[in-house]
Protein backbone atom coordinates (compact mmCIF):
# COMPACT_ATOMS: atom_id res chain seq x y z
CA UNK A 1 0.00 0.00 0.00
CA UNK A 2 1.19 3.49 -0.79
CA UNK A 3 0.16 5.83 1.94
CA UNK A 4 2.72 8.49 1.18
CA UNK A 5 1.64 11.31 -1.11
CA UNK A 6 3.94 12.08 -4.05
CA UNK A 7 5.44 8.59 -4.11
CA UNK A 8 6.96 8.34 -7.60
CA UNK A 9 5.68 5.54 -9.84
CA UNK A 10 8.40 2.91 -10.05
CA UNK A 11 9.80 2.38 -13.57
CA UNK A 12 9.33 -1.21 -14.64
CA UNK A 13 9.43 -1.00 -18.42
CA UNK A 14 12.41 -1.13 -20.76
CA UNK A 15 14.89 -3.92 -21.41
CA UNK A 16 14.53 -6.88 -23.78
CA UNK A 17 16.11 -4.88 -26.60
CA UNK A 18 19.76 -5.92 -26.95
CA UNK A 19 21.79 -3.41 -28.92
CA UNK A 20 25.07 -3.69 -30.75
CA UNK A 21 27.92 -2.07 -28.86
CA UNK A 22 30.75 -1.06 -31.19
CA UNK A 23 34.15 -2.77 -30.93
CA UNK A 24 32.96 -5.12 -28.18
CA UNK A 25 33.25 -8.13 -30.48
CA UNK A 26 36.75 -7.07 -31.51
CA UNK A 27 37.83 -6.62 -27.89
CA UNK A 28 36.52 -10.08 -26.93
CA UNK A 29 38.54 -11.53 -29.82
CA UNK A 30 41.68 -9.64 -28.85
CA UNK A 31 41.42 -10.55 -25.16
CA UNK A 32 40.87 -14.22 -25.97
CA UNK A 33 43.87 -14.38 -28.32
CA UNK A 34 46.07 -12.43 -25.88
CA UNK A 35 45.11 -14.84 -23.07
CA UNK A 36 45.84 -17.80 -25.34
CA UNK A 37 49.24 -16.40 -26.36
CA UNK A 38 50.06 -15.64 -22.73
CA UNK A 39 49.04 -19.17 -21.69
CA UNK A 40 51.23 -20.72 -24.38
CA UNK A 41 54.28 -18.61 -23.52
CA UNK A 42 54.10 -19.34 -19.82
CA UNK A 43 53.56 -23.04 -20.48
CA UNK A 44 50.13 -22.93 -18.85
CA UNK A 45 48.76 -24.20 -22.17
CA UNK A 46 50.92 -27.06 -23.40
CA UNK A 47 52.26 -26.59 -26.93
CA UNK A 48 51.25 -30.17 -27.62
CA UNK A 49 47.60 -29.43 -26.88
CA UNK A 50 47.32 -26.08 -28.58
CA UNK A 51 50.01 -24.10 -30.41
CA UNK A 52 50.34 -20.40 -29.67
CA UNK A 53 48.45 -18.02 -31.96
CA UNK A 54 51.80 -16.57 -33.01
CA UNK A 55 52.94 -20.02 -34.16
CA UNK A 56 49.70 -20.52 -36.09
CA UNK A 57 50.23 -17.11 -37.66
CA UNK A 58 53.81 -18.04 -38.53
CA UNK A 59 52.51 -21.22 -40.17
CA UNK A 60 50.05 -19.11 -42.14
CA UNK A 61 52.83 -16.74 -43.28
CA UNK A 62 54.96 -19.72 -44.28
CA UNK A 63 52.04 -21.05 -46.30
CA UNK A 64 51.59 -17.70 -48.01
CA UNK A 65 55.33 -17.30 -48.69
CA UNK A 66 55.68 -20.75 -50.22
CA UNK A 67 52.90 -19.88 -52.68
CA UNK A 68 50.83 -22.86 -51.50
CA UNK A 69 48.18 -20.62 -49.99
CA UNK A 70 47.09 -19.42 -53.43
CA UNK A 71 47.01 -22.99 -54.73
CA UNK A 72 44.97 -24.33 -51.80
CA UNK A 73 42.67 -21.35 -51.65
CA UNK A 74 41.97 -21.16 -55.38
CA UNK A 75 41.25 -24.90 -55.53
CA UNK A 76 38.80 -24.57 -52.62
CA UNK A 77 37.17 -21.38 -53.82
CA UNK A 78 36.63 -22.83 -57.26
CA UNK A 79 34.89 -25.91 -55.83
CA UNK A 80 32.78 -23.94 -53.43
CA UNK A 81 31.76 -21.29 -55.94
CA UNK A 82 30.84 -23.73 -58.71
CA UNK A 83 29.08 -26.14 -56.35
CA UNK A 84 27.24 -23.46 -54.45
CA UNK A 85 26.16 -21.37 -57.43
CA UNK A 86 24.87 -24.44 -59.27
CA UNK A 87 23.15 -25.79 -56.16
CA UNK A 88 21.65 -22.44 -55.24
CA UNK A 89 20.42 -21.54 -58.72
CA UNK A 90 18.93 -24.97 -59.36
CA UNK A 91 17.43 -24.83 -55.87
CA UNK A 92 15.81 -21.45 -56.58
CA UNK A 93 14.38 -22.79 -59.85
CA UNK A 94 13.01 -25.94 -58.21
CA UNK A 95 11.71 -23.90 -55.27
CA UNK A 96 9.87 -21.53 -57.58
CA UNK A 97 8.27 -24.46 -59.42
CA UNK A 98 7.15 -25.99 -56.12
CA UNK A 99 5.85 -22.58 -55.05
CA UNK A 100 3.86 -22.10 -58.26
CA UNK A 101 2.72 -25.41 -59.73
CA UNK A 102 0.53 -28.06 -58.13
CA UNK A 103 2.21 -30.84 -60.09
CA UNK A 104 5.72 -29.80 -59.03
CA UNK A 105 4.55 -29.40 -55.45
CA UNK A 106 2.90 -32.81 -55.28
CA UNK A 107 5.69 -34.54 -57.19
CA UNK A 108 8.83 -32.93 -55.80
CA UNK A 109 8.00 -31.95 -52.25
CA UNK A 110 7.94 -35.53 -50.84
CA UNK A 111 11.24 -36.18 -52.61
CA UNK A 112 12.77 -33.03 -51.14
CA UNK A 113 11.52 -33.93 -47.67
CA UNK A 114 13.03 -37.40 -48.00
CA UNK A 115 16.43 -36.28 -49.30
CA UNK A 116 16.94 -33.06 -47.34
CA UNK A 117 17.81 -34.70 -44.00
CA UNK A 118 20.32 -37.13 -45.57
CA UNK A 119 23.84 -35.86 -44.73
CA UNK A 120 25.41 -35.43 -48.14
CA UNK A 121 28.79 -36.49 -46.71
CA UNK A 122 27.34 -40.00 -46.44
CA UNK A 123 26.77 -39.94 -50.20
CA UNK A 124 30.33 -38.83 -50.96
CA UNK A 125 31.64 -42.36 -51.73
CA UNK A 126 28.71 -42.79 -54.10
CA UNK A 127 29.52 -39.46 -55.77
CA UNK A 128 33.13 -40.60 -56.15
CA UNK A 129 31.89 -43.63 -58.08
CA UNK A 130 29.46 -41.54 -60.16
CA UNK A 131 31.50 -38.43 -60.84
CA UNK A 132 35.10 -39.62 -60.36
CA UNK A 133 37.61 -38.96 -57.63
CA UNK A 134 38.51 -35.55 -59.11
CA UNK A 135 36.57 -32.29 -59.08
CA UNK A 136 33.23 -33.87 -60.08
CA UNK A 137 32.49 -35.62 -56.80
CA UNK A 138 33.54 -32.58 -54.73
CA UNK A 139 31.41 -30.14 -56.68
CA UNK A 140 28.51 -32.62 -56.66
CA UNK A 141 28.64 -32.94 -52.87
CA UNK A 142 28.46 -29.18 -52.42
CA UNK A 143 25.81 -28.90 -55.14
CA UNK A 144 23.50 -31.44 -53.51
CA UNK A 145 24.15 -30.08 -50.06
CA UNK A 146 23.12 -26.55 -51.00
CA UNK A 147 20.35 -27.53 -53.42
CA UNK A 148 17.83 -28.79 -50.85
CA UNK A 149 17.99 -26.00 -48.25
CA UNK A 150 17.66 -23.47 -51.09
CA UNK A 151 14.53 -25.23 -52.39
CA UNK A 152 12.96 -25.14 -48.96
CA UNK A 153 13.84 -21.48 -48.36
CA UNK A 154 12.50 -20.49 -51.79
CA UNK A 155 9.16 -22.25 -51.76
CA UNK A 156 8.39 -21.29 -48.18
CA UNK A 157 9.25 -17.70 -49.12
CA UNK A 158 6.70 -17.91 -51.94
CA UNK A 159 4.13 -19.53 -49.63
CA UNK A 160 4.44 -16.60 -47.26
CA UNK A 161 3.84 -13.87 -49.83
CA UNK A 162 0.82 -11.77 -48.99
CA UNK A 163 -1.97 -13.27 -51.16
CA UNK A 164 -3.65 -9.87 -51.39
CA UNK A 165 -0.71 -8.60 -53.48
CA UNK A 166 -1.22 -11.41 -55.98
CA UNK A 167 -4.96 -10.72 -56.02
CA UNK A 168 -4.16 -7.05 -56.66
CA UNK A 169 -1.96 -7.99 -59.63
CA UNK A 170 -4.72 -10.16 -61.07
CA UNK A 171 -7.33 -7.45 -60.54
CA UNK A 172 -5.26 -5.04 -62.63
CA UNK A 173 -5.06 -7.59 -65.42
CA UNK A 174 -1.34 -8.23 -65.02
CA UNK A 175 -0.05 -11.18 -67.02
CA UNK A 176 1.01 -14.37 -65.24
CA UNK A 177 4.66 -13.82 -66.04
CA UNK A 178 4.51 -10.22 -64.76
CA UNK A 179 2.96 -11.38 -61.50
CA UNK A 180 5.72 -13.95 -61.06
CA UNK A 181 8.49 -11.54 -62.02
CA UNK A 182 7.30 -8.42 -60.22
CA UNK A 183 5.33 -9.72 -57.25
CA UNK A 184 6.27 -13.31 -56.43
CA UNK A 185 10.05 -13.30 -56.91
CA UNK A 186 10.72 -9.97 -55.14
CA UNK A 187 8.33 -11.07 -52.40
CA UNK A 188 10.28 -14.29 -51.87
CA UNK A 189 13.66 -12.53 -52.10
CA UNK A 190 14.18 -12.02 -48.34
CA UNK A 191 13.61 -15.74 -47.74
CA UNK A 192 15.83 -16.71 -50.68
CA UNK A 193 18.69 -14.57 -49.39
CA UNK A 194 18.46 -15.92 -45.87
CA UNK A 195 18.45 -19.38 -47.48
CA UNK A 196 21.71 -18.35 -49.21
CA UNK A 197 23.25 -17.53 -45.84
CA UNK A 198 22.52 -21.02 -44.59
CA UNK A 199 23.57 -22.77 -47.80
CA UNK A 200 26.87 -20.84 -47.92
CA UNK A 201 27.93 -22.20 -44.55
CA UNK A 202 26.75 -25.69 -45.52
CA UNK A 203 28.93 -25.33 -48.64
CA UNK A 204 32.04 -24.67 -46.52
CA UNK A 205 31.33 -27.64 -44.26
CA UNK A 206 30.91 -29.94 -47.26
CA UNK A 207 33.96 -28.48 -48.99
CA UNK A 208 36.23 -29.59 -46.15
CA UNK A 209 34.60 -33.00 -45.99
CA UNK A 210 34.90 -33.50 -49.76
CA UNK A 211 38.53 -32.37 -49.81
CA UNK A 212 39.43 -34.99 -47.27
CA UNK A 213 39.03 -37.64 -49.98
CA UNK A 214 41.47 -37.62 -52.86
CA UNK A 215 42.31 -33.95 -53.05
CA UNK A 216 45.85 -32.72 -53.66
CA UNK A 217 45.08 -29.08 -53.06
CA UNK A 218 42.41 -27.33 -51.04
CA UNK A 219 42.08 -25.97 -47.52
CA UNK A 220 40.47 -29.25 -46.43
CA UNK A 221 43.36 -31.26 -47.80
CA UNK A 222 45.81 -28.93 -46.09
CA UNK A 223 44.04 -29.34 -42.74
CA UNK A 224 43.84 -33.13 -43.14
CA UNK A 225 47.56 -33.35 -43.89
CA UNK A 226 48.45 -31.05 -41.00
CA UNK A 227 46.28 -33.14 -38.69
CA UNK A 228 47.86 -36.46 -39.67
CA UNK A 229 51.34 -34.98 -39.18
CA UNK A 230 50.30 -33.46 -35.85
CA UNK A 231 51.20 -30.02 -37.22
CA UNK A 232 48.66 -28.30 -35.03
CA UNK A 233 49.95 -24.83 -35.91
CA UNK A 234 49.11 -25.46 -39.56
CA UNK A 235 45.81 -26.98 -38.57
CA UNK A 236 44.83 -23.84 -36.65
CA UNK A 237 45.95 -21.67 -39.59
CA UNK A 238 43.74 -23.73 -41.93
CA UNK A 239 40.76 -23.43 -39.62
CA UNK A 240 41.28 -19.67 -39.44
CA UNK A 241 41.26 -19.50 -43.24
CA UNK A 242 37.92 -21.37 -43.29
CA UNK A 243 36.51 -18.96 -40.75
CA UNK A 244 37.63 -15.97 -42.82
CA UNK A 245 36.11 -17.59 -45.90
CA UNK A 246 32.79 -17.94 -44.08
CA UNK A 247 32.94 -14.32 -42.94
CA UNK A 248 33.67 -13.19 -46.50
CA UNK A 249 30.66 -15.10 -47.86
CA UNK A 250 28.43 -13.67 -45.14
CA UNK A 251 29.67 -10.19 -45.98
CA UNK A 252 28.91 -10.63 -49.69
CA UNK A 253 25.39 -11.87 -48.91
CA UNK A 254 24.96 -8.99 -46.48
CA UNK A 255 25.87 -6.56 -49.27
CA UNK A 256 23.40 -8.27 -51.59
CA UNK A 257 20.69 -7.91 -48.93
CA UNK A 258 21.49 -4.22 -48.52
CA UNK A 259 21.12 -3.65 -52.25
CA UNK A 260 18.24 -5.99 -53.09
CA UNK A 261 16.22 -5.36 -49.94
CA UNK A 262 16.76 -1.61 -49.69
CA UNK A 263 12.97 -1.22 -49.43
CA UNK A 264 12.79 -2.85 -45.99
Amino acid sequence: MVDRINAPVKFRGGGFAPKKIRFTGLIVFAVLIAFWEFGSRTGFISALVLPAPSEAFAAFMELARSGMLVKHLSASLQRVLIGWSLGASLGVLAGISIGLFSLARSGLLPLVSALFPVPKIALLPLFVIWFGIGEGSKVATILFGTFFPTIIATYSGIDNIDRSLIRMGQSFGMSWISIVRKIIIPGAMPAILSGFRISASIAIILLVAAEMIGAEYGIGAYILLAGSLMQTDQLIAGVAILSLMGLAFAWVIGRAEKILLAWR
Binding site: M168, G173, P186
Partner: peptide
Protein backbone atom coordinates in the same frame (compact mmCIF):
# COMPACT_ATOMS: atom_id res chain seq x y z
CA UNK B 1 -9.59 2.73 -70.20
CA UNK B 2 -6.90 0.12 -69.53
CA UNK B 3 -8.68 -1.81 -66.78
CA UNK B 4 -12.43 -1.16 -66.72
CA UNK B 5 -13.09 -2.86 -63.38
CA UNK B 6 -10.49 -1.64 -60.90
CA UNK B 7 -10.28 -2.43 -57.21
CA UNK B 8 -9.24 -0.37 -54.24
CA UNK B 9 -8.48 -2.71 -51.35
CA UNK B 10 -8.85 -2.27 -47.62
CA UNK B 11 -5.20 -3.25 -47.00
CA UNK B 12 -3.94 -0.95 -49.82
CA UNK B 13 -2.05 -3.84 -51.51
CA UNK B 14 1.03 -1.78 -52.36
CA UNK B 15 4.25 -3.59 -53.21
CA UNK B 16 6.69 -2.71 -50.40
CA UNK B 17 9.64 -3.11 -52.78
CA UNK B 18 8.43 -0.44 -55.16
Amino acid sequence: SLNPLTYIFQDFALLPWR
